[in-house]
Structures are given as structure tokens and as C-alpha cells.
């Protein structure tokens, strides 16, 4: 009696298990959980949703999308971003078609053209006129092979750049205050831009912790506030600056600090 009662449930369980194994759900979920633990995102549910979205679309997508998805897993300030970089580099350097007889198709390695495409994907949220100078500096020649060091440097710079553009946008809206229309006082903008420049100039080349602290000291809020206030009192002319110009100048300051690779 006991056997007969128990067996259908057991059978059902086994059926389900077989089904999940057969359809790869088991391995996918296991992989997703491992990725989740590794990356420790703030919102695990959104992370899982994106992860499974990527899985279900990845059959159609190309190499660039796959690599981009790997890099997108976690923010660049997280420890696990470094691991993701390695995984992404491996995925990017896979040969296009290992069985092909043509030498250009079966050789593994990341070429400059694929790499440029990848950088463009990462920067796709930033308007093109803003990131053109950056790409000029870190871009490679189309036929070059990209070593991992360069890959890591460029990708990290791109992600920092995307964050920087976002920050610049919010700084500008703070500067605008309640003024309608996307324009604000030119002098104020120039003070902000020049203080960022000063801070970056005070950075030494070796990037020692001390010089980073010193740069942060130059950027401290009370100093910025006092220089803004001193301008306010001596204000005479009313020239203005729009958002595009402001962003452009800020980004010029940023990109001037980036090594030219070409």
C-alpha cells in the first residue's frame, strides 16, 4: 500500500528532474546562482531577470553582445569586475570560425576592429560627439591584436567615462538650479571646470595614494563653494553657457588625462 501511494509522487519528481535536466534549466539556474554570488548585485531579482533575458536571446546574438553582457554583469568598482574582464577577454578572443580554412577566420585573438565595435557598444548611451575624442585616444588599428592589459585599461576607462558623463549631466542641472532653459552662468561653469582641471593636474603620474588624496582635497566642497561665492559678488557680465558646451569642456579635461595608445 505504502509503495503504491509513494511511487506516483516519486515518479513525478523524477519526471520533473529529468525534464529540467533535459532542457538545461538545472545547469542554467546553477550558473545564474553562481554568477549572482560572485557579483553580489544590489538587486538580485533584476540581475536574474537580465541574466535569463541574455540567455534566451544569446543564440541569435553575436560575439560583441555576449562580451558586452559579461561586462555589464557588475559595476566597474566591484571586485568581481576584474574576473568578468578576464572572462570577457577570453570570449572576445575566440576564433570566429575555428573550422574554417581561411587564416583570418580560424585564428583566435581579439582584433582592433572587433574591439572598437565593443567600445562603441559600451559608449552607445553617450552622444557620439562627446565620446569621439576618447575613442581617438584609446582606439586601436583595425588589424592590430589587442593584449589583455590594453583591453582592461580601455574597457575600464570607457565605463568610468560613462559614469563621468552622467555625473557631469547632474552637475550641470545643479548649476542651472531653477533657471528655465538649459543655460546657466558661464563664469560659474568655468570655475567648476577649472577646479576639476586643477585637481587632475595635481595628480602625479605614479597615481600614488597621496596624490589622489591631494587631488580630492583640491575638489573639496567648501573650496568649490567659496570660489563660487567669490564669483557671485563680482558678477558683472551675463554671458551664458549651454549644456553641450559645458559637457564638452568637462569631457575635454577628462580625456586629456587619458593615455594615447595608437
Amino acid at each position: 500500500m505504502g509503495d503504491r501511494k509513494k511511487s506516483p509522487i516519486e515518479e513525478r519528481k523524477q519526471q520533473y528532474k529529468d525534464y529540467l535536466d533535459k532542457t538545461d534549466v538545472t545547469s542554467q539556474v546553477r550558473e545564474a546562482l553562481l554568477k549572482l554570488i560572485e557579483n553580489q548585485p544590489k538587486d538580485p531579482m533584476l540581475f536574474l531577470a537580465n541574466y535569463f533575458d541574455n540567455i534566451s536571446t544569446s543564440d541569435k546574438s553575436d560575439k560583441i553582445t555576449t562580451v558586452h553582457q559579461i561586462l555589464q554583469l557588475t559595476h566597474h568598482s566591484q571586485q568581481s569586475f576584474q574576473t568578468n574582464l578576464i572572462v570577457a577577454y577570453d570570449a572576445a578572443s575566440l576564433a570566429k570560425n575555428p573550422n574554417s580554412k581561411k587564416a583570418s577566420m580560424n585564428r583566435p585573438g581579439l582584433t582592433g576592429s572587433v574591439f572598437e565595435e565593443l567600445l562603441a557598444t559600451i559608449l552607445s548611451n553617450v552622444p557620439k560627439n562627446l565620446h569621439a575624442t576618447l575613442l581617438e585616444r584609446i582606439g586601436c588599428r583595425a588589424s592590430e591584436m589587442v593584449p589583455f592589459g590594453v583591453f582592461r585599461y580601455c574597457i575600464t576607462v570607457c565605463y568610468v567615462f560613462v559614469d563621468f558623463v552622467k555625473l557631469c549631466g547632474s552637475i550641470f542641472s545643479v548649476l542651472c538650479g531653477k533657471q528655465s532653459g538649459k543655460v546657466t552662468d558661464k563664469d560659474i561653469c568655468e570655475i567648476v571646470i577649472s577646479s576639476l582641471k586643477d585637481a587632475l593636474d595635481s595628480l602625479q603620474d605614479d597615481n600614488s595614494p597621496c596624490s589622489i588624496l591631494e587631488a580630492a582635497y583640491v575638489l573639496r566642497p567648501d573650496k568649490l563653494a567659496s570660489s563660487l561665492l567669490s564669483n557671485k559678488s563680482s558678477k558683472t557680465d551675463k554671458s551664458t553657457m549651454n549644456e553641450d558646451d559645458f559637457m564638452k569642456e568637462m569631457i575635454d579635461v577628462f580625456t586629456s588625462k587619458i593615455k594615447v595608445l595608437k
Binding site: T23, D24, V25, Q28, V29, D43, M45, L46, L48, A49, N50, Y51, F52, D53, I55, S56, T57
Partner: peptide, 15 residues
């Protein structure tokens, strides 16, 4: 049923 999509939809609705 597309398993990846089903799971993605599930987690998105939880989110």
C-alpha cells in the same frame, strides 16, 4: 515554452 524567457519574465515581475 522558452525557459530562459519564462524565468526572465518571472524575475522581472518580482522586481
Amino acid at each position: 515554452i522558452i525557459h530562459g524567457k519564462f524565468l526572465a519574465d518571472y524575475f522581472r515581475s518580482v522586481h
